[in-house]
Design a protein around this nucleic acid. Sequence first.
DNA 1: ACCAATTCCGAGTAAATTACTTTACTTTCA
DNA 2: TGAAAGTAAAGTAATTTACTCGGAATTGGT
Lengths: 148, 148
Amino acid sequence: MRLSTRGHYGLKAIYDLALHYGEGPVPISEIARRQMISEPYLEQLFSVLRKAGLIKSVRGAQGGYLLNRLPEEITVGEIVRVLEGPIAPVECVSENVKEACDQADACISRVVWAKVRDALNKVLDSITLKDMIEEAKKNQNQNLMYYI
Amino acid sequence: MRLSTRGHYGLKAIYDLALHYGEGPVPISEIARRQMISEPYLEQLFSVLRKAGLIKSVRGAQGGYLLNRLPEEITVGEIVRVLEGPIAPVECVSENVKEACDQADACISRVVWAKVRDALNKVLDSITLKDMIEEAKKNQNQNLMYYI
DNA sequence: ACCAATTCCGAGTAAATTACTTTACTTTCA
DNA sequence: TGAAAGTAAAGTAATTTACTCGGAATTGGT
């Protein structure tokens, strides 16, 4: 029940973009360095995120990537779905698989996986990049208190 | 964000055992046939489930496997955790990984994955084998209505 | 006592997936 | 015009998955 590095790195990277929202294009090399991700690998991920419309790119020198929407308009669920495919613990409850499985009698387990899928989608879709930024600020304040 | 076949097959097989609760030991060959799972592969899974105390075995002729507890005392969460390891979308929020990750600044994503983990555990632990049996009965009644 | 049905155990393996790297472009700013 | 960037497609090593295989141990029935 693990995410691959695609969703893991992808969220970190796009969150980094959200932190620099409004500051113009951020080159992949910077994000890769800050988030400790292989630069050419991150290129691949950003290519997918760009095609999905979550981020946009500026080519050439002084270019880079930017969020294509406000941080409060991008959810973790969207990012994960774009990079990892539809969220489904087993294939037969995936949104893009329409045909029922041929073992109807055994498929009470399908109901279980559908519940898991729904719970997963619900929590992932409830968190936006803005939420994450605010959470980070809150934690930062807590840390400051330790130094007073 | 997929389960491996271990959790998928494991739940089907142990649910099959729950359906035959109170009828004496059920041989692996029967379950494998009914649930369309490779018999030697299922042996492996049952070995793990037995060592975890969820099921017990009777060796020799007329032997087989049985639930080691009442169907209402076994949750889907336990089965999945035993077969797939601790439920955690990324390693750093796994219950058995204690050390914090070394990129403290970037780890706001950790909060996200911890929320996902908790949501997942909550839904999986809320469903027992008995719940599944009752759900199946309910669905069967619905099907009967179509034939009236 | 023996045989067949069963679990138990460890090792082996082919295919798929993952997490990259590599190479070769194209675009744009200064 | 050259360096800094994104774009694209192919290649690859390591890991994981989903098994298979062989055989030993156990037990009920005849």
